[in-house]
């Protein structure tokens, strides 16, 4: 069943996040049905601009400005890397999940993250970059992944907080990407967002269960929310005044809303959801602002965000070492599969 049934009226009268994903999917189909864009494809830049202006999608073999291509490769690759590295903090709890049911769910969720990484690598490859290059750029640090995954998962409640806050922030960030002007990215994001909503709900359910459990369980849930709140707010990136890529991204309809707008949307949604959980958002400055019709809140520590992005977070080294090890220890599997495929080719059919 789709529909974000734990998002209160604060989330808007749009039927929740999944409603927005479905609206984006409908818009994609509607734009396609409006027929071909007027103009001469040979007038490259003009035709590209006309397609963007008509809210239609740019597809892999279309001409596109170099900066558009480069920007998309950077963004999609970073997103793919985040999904792959994002398996680690949660994967570490698979063997320690408190019940078989929770373990099966967590396994399915971590498998989804791998799938999301693969959808995104596939989308990036349509821009002319190879998978092997992308993997290399992650492994040698030339490309980044989301700084949120450099924080440790200390207790089981962290799995709940990641689902609710981290996946919640990711969804708020990603739902507008379902309307991105680059077709393969938009289509991948539609798939991803539909699956992410299961992730967010499983986390919310874990916290809800813990919050209503023993005193110790309630405190564990609160502690997890206390630690994950500000890193989750930082996931929306630097404030608009410092954001380097935003304006061009918006003009090209890659990005649809500013970092600060999305952060505000996320805070407004979480307040009501925290109330249902019976947990406190760790911000003494949090209050409703009648004039703005939005919550005032304390901004995350952007200096800390920059430090973590630059490599100085609690788990940066561990995450990268683990990924490099997994890649090199998996080499024999890739080699064996390649050898088998080669051998099959040699067998001449009778």
């Amino acid at each position: 069943m789709y529909g974000n049934d734990f998002a209160g009226p604060d989330a808007g009268s749009d039927g929740g996040l999944l409603g927005q994903v479905e609206a984006a999917e409908a818009a994609l189909r509607a734009a396609a049905l409006r027929g071909r864009v007027e103009g001469d494809p040979a007038a490259l830049q003009d035709y590209f601009d006309a397609v963007i202006a008509a809210d239609q999608k740019i597809e892999p073999r279309d001409w596109m400005p170099d900066a558009y291509r480069r920007g998309l490769v950077r963004q999609i690759a970073q997103h793919a890397h985040s999904e792959i590295i994002g398996m680690q903090p949660e994967g570490s709890w698979i063997t320690r999940a408190p019940s078989l049911k929770r373990k099966a769910i967590l396994l399915a969720k971590v498998q989804d993250e791998a799938g999301h990484g693969l959808y995104l690598y596939a989308a990036a490859e349509t821009l002319g970059v190879s998978r092997a290059e992308l993997v290399d750029m992650l492994l040698d640090g030339r490309q980044k992944y989301s700084s949120i995954f450099n924080y440790p998962t200390l207790t089981w409640a962290d799995i709940g907080a990641i689902g609710w806050l981290v996946d919640g922030a990711a969804i708020v960030n990603q739902v507008p990407l379902c309307r991105c002007s680059y077709g393969p990215y938009a289509r991948a994001m539609i798939r991803i967002c539909k699956e992410e909503s299961f992730h967010q709900r499983q986390g919310y359910e874990i916290l809800h269960t813990l919050s209503r459990g023993t005193q110790a369980q309630h405190e564990m849930a609160q502690d997890a929310v206390d630690r994950w709140w500000y890193p989750s707010l930082a996931m929306f990136g630097p404030p608009d005044t410092d954001s380097t890529h935003s304006a061009q991204s918006m003009a090209w309809k890659i990005k649809r809303f500013s970092n600060d707008d999305l952060r505000q949307r996320f805070v407004d949604m979480c307040v009501q959801q925290a109330g249902v959980l019976g947990l406190r958002i760790p911000d003494p400055g949090l209050r409703w602002n009648e004039e703005r019709q939005a919550h005032d809140f304390t901004a995350p520590d952007y200096d800390e965000l920059m430090r973590v992005i630059k490599g100085d977070g609690p788990c940066n080294e561990e995450r990268m070492a683990h990924r490099r090890r997994a890649h090199s220890e998996g080499a024999w599997v890739r080699e064996a599969a390649a050898a088998y495929a080669a051998k099959q080719q040699e067998v001449v059919p009778a």
Binding site: Q111, G115, Y119, A122, A188, A337
Partner: peptide, 22 residues
């Protein structure tokens, strides 16, 4: 979408896992 695999049989199995989990 697309994926990398050493051969068609593996591609089919991987496609099942990547694109038809639901």
């Amino acid at each position: 979408g697309s994926l990398h695999a050493p051969d068609a049989a593996m591609a089919l199995r991987n496609a099942r896992d990547v694109y038809t989990r639901r």
